[in-house]
Design a protein around this nucleic acid. Sequence first.
DNA 1: CGTAATGCTTGCACTTTGCAATTACATGTG
DNA 2: CACATGTAATTGCAAAGTGCAAGCATTACG
Lengths: 169, 169
Amino acid sequence: MKQAAAPASDDGLKLSAWLPYRLFLVAAQVARPLESFYSETFGLSQAGWRILAVIAERDAANASEIGRACALDPFAVSRGIGQLTELGFAVRRPGKTDRRFAAVSITRSGRTAFNRIAALGSAIEARLLARLSEAERTILGSALTRLEGESARIDAGGWRALLDDAGAP
Amino acid sequence: MKQAAAPASDDGLKLSAWLPYRLFLVAAQVARPLESFYSETFGLSQAGWRILAVIAERDAANASEIGRACALDPFAVSRGIGQLTELGFAVRRPGKTDRRFAAVSITRSGRTAFNRIAALGSAIEARLLARLSEAERTILGSALTRLEGESARIDAGGWRALLDDAGAP
DNA sequence: CGTAATGCTTGCACTTTGCAATTACATGTG
DNA sequence: CACATGTAATTGCAAAGTGCAAGCATTACG
């Protein structure tokens, strides 16, 4: 049997031009320096950072709220919170009315850490935005809102749904 | 010591409005159905899929070219190629002139698999693009090109560089 | 030739992840 | 009021993935 180099492309999907990959690439490249900062400075994981950012803007949250807010499954949230409490960046307290929902909130030192990371994060965002015109920023913002919505629907539908409706509403 | 909920936000970084996170979110949500498709259908890993996509558009590539093309370190590339050859989706042949550079190329069945995955990928992209106007697509495309460049520079510079030049060229 | 450099692979320890089972609590039902 | 049922969160463990030192094969250079 031969099994060798087939001539050239059949389907027109070029990875480097495929929208999801391009989004991923920017996100990944930009996440790397940030990640090495918070991981070597605070020993924080990616999930830990995301959760920290979420509880920094709410003043108490339960695990499933956090999960929804930063696209993390319950396991990851639980472990992330565990890490944050170990580091002294968050506290868990049993919920007021329903004690199954533990209320997680950020501590003073958690906020300090958050602010240091956020400063870097803002610097990164500024660097990116500097490459865009005012008009482009506006359009990108509104386009992203729609893309977020659509991608959530795509995710929820699963891959089977994608093949059926090759041309459906 | 008290360590409890601090009042509210200090630094103005809202995760859900932070550009890199928004990009990541779309990319991640959209990648999930695709990933479950190729993983349950072909037993392919994420790295495997990326490499497959790369060798589908070149007709022979060495490991470091592949690595550069899809942002994977040499170890991951090596293992990914290993997986692809085990699945019969790629072949390694010693390089023509310099036999340290093994030439990796896609097989017929690899191309078949690629086309099936690419069909799904294109469907996803189409769903996303359908949410944008023609003008938006153009602008998004050109903006992404610049963001890719800038994010590569940010990545290369590391986090120390980001704090220094709070206001540099 | 022999030594160094290059491209890639492998083995092994370590970390992360996915999932079943578990705990803890709340609520509805006879 | 006991008891089944449902829900939120956690934990233990196996599987998968990752990072890195060391290895092999090959080429380049003195």
